[in-house]
């Protein structure tokens, strides 16, 4: 039973704006799972999907949908900020984002983006 794992994942942790934060990224063939947590839990689950556009004409817009947790505007904004670039770099793959954030300041979000980049599995 020693088949090698079919999923690639990377994890890291860092203190962001004074808050201990963990990030785990896992690559599936059809989607990326990004977990960003300052509570150690899954928190709010958001699906971030690029809209379909003709190749090379423009960058796609993103549709965010809260699957679990509080559905408020700031959640959608944070989600787009955090993983739009991830999706684009992965060739416009949908991203499933799980975030449990204590600090949702713009500075915090910027730093979190850099931490996510360190867990590059795409």
């Amino acid at each position: 039973m020693a088949a090698k794992p079919v999923l690639a994942s990377k994890q890291t942790e860092e203190v962001v704006q004074g808050v201990p934060t963990e990030v785990v990224c896992t690559a599936f063939a059809n989607t990326l799972l990004v977990v960003v947590t300052q509570y150690g839990k899954m928190g709010t689950l958001v699906s971030v999907e690029p809209d379909v556009v003709a190749d090379g004409i423009s960058k796609p817009l993103f549709t965010t949908k809260v699957l679990l947790g509080k559905d408020e505007p700031l959640v959608h904004i944070c989600a787009k900020h955090l993983v739009t670039s991830v999706s684009q770099e992965a060739g416009n793959k949908p991203v499933l984002l799980s975030m449990a954030l204590k600090d949702r300041s713009i500075e915090g979000i910027q730093t979190l983006r850099e931490v996510i980049q360190r867990c590059r599995v795409w």
Partner: peptide
Amino acid sequence: HFHAMRLRDSLFLWIGEAPQLSSL
């Protein structure tokens, strides 16, 4: 294939034959 991610008081468990995530 199985992929388990243990978080605080919770668990994420993926089960699959190919690396797809299509249900949760």
